[in-house]
Simulated scan of single mutants.
Amino acid sequence: MDTLELIEKENYTIVQMNRGKVNAINYEMVKELGEVFKKLEDDPDVMGVILSGQPHYFSAGLDLIELYQYDKEQIQQFFTAFGALYLQLVQFKKPFISAITGHSPAGGCVLAVTSDNRFMADGEAYVIGLNEVAVNIQISQNLTEIYAFWMGDGLAHRYILEGKLLSGKEALDAGLVDELVPLDQVFERSERQMKHYMKADQEILINTKKKLRKRLWDKLDLNAENALQEASVLWWKPEIRAKMKAYLESFTNKNKK
């Protein structure tokens, strides 16, 4: 694997995103995450999964620099695959924890909100949130449902429309993350929670998770291609392309300084 590293524990696995220091999400990472989580869900010896990032970054979100270069077929494939990955993770039947090792905006947040617990590094600079509106990417109905699942309809409505990125404290208050812990303790806290789950009868745990998520699952559009069709169409809107190009140029120029 080129974008992930697996750390096998006694009865659970840590999946560490490892694509540069910011873990920007491209098509390759999406496909590898899907393949790995499928294998781990089917493996009877793996009872739970922790998804983690690099120090200071869980994931900075979609790799807009690479995605901007995709043609129409490639961007359709990407959004379909990303929508399928979201549906796969949100329906993952085993205990699933996100060890949020720093920033987790947009696509990073998409991955994190599918998990059962989110332990986030405490730091004033770290942010998390679905800020798709602010970066001119169409959010799917499926994503609005899980945001509301964790923080309630009112806050989800306001924060999504605003394209708001939340500080750790704001995310904690909203119910988007479970706890804030020092960066060097994010793994330890996540593993401690996983070991707690491992003490339970696994059939009971899986059945209970299924019951807790039933109302969320019932609201989801399970056709990944349909779910993100709007995003792939609006991606090519001239005004959006112009804004994205300007953003990428400013970002590239800033990194050159």
Rank of each mutant, 00 (worst) to 15 (best):
E170Y: 03
F187K: 13
K254L: 05
K93A: 14
A171Y: 03
K211A: 10
E162L: 01
V233D: 14
E191L: 01
P95A: 00
Q185R: 10
K219W: 06
E162C: 15
K31C: 10
V30K: 03
W235Q: 05
E8S: 14
P182G: 04
V22F: 08
Q77C: 15
L143S: 07
N142K: 00
L111N: 12
P95T: 12
W150R: 11
G108M: 04
Y57I: 11
Q91E: 12
P44H: 11
Q193L: 08
D122L: 02
Q76E: 07
L89M: 11
H196G: 05
G152P: 04
N253P: 00
V49F: 12
M151C: 03
A148R: 01
A134I: 00
E145V: 00
F251W: 14
V46M: 00
A242K: 13
K211D: 15
Q69V: 10
M29F: 10
V30E: 01
V110E: 09
S104D: 03
N117H: 15
E35F: 10
D63R: 05
E5I: 15
I100N: 12
S190Y: 00
A81C: 02
M194A: 06
L234D: 11
L67A: 14
Y197S: 00
K169C: 05
G102C: 07
S250W: 06
K243Q: 06
T3E: 08
L111D: 04
L212P: 07
V127E: 03
A156T: 01
F119Q: 04
R118F: 01
L165F: 12
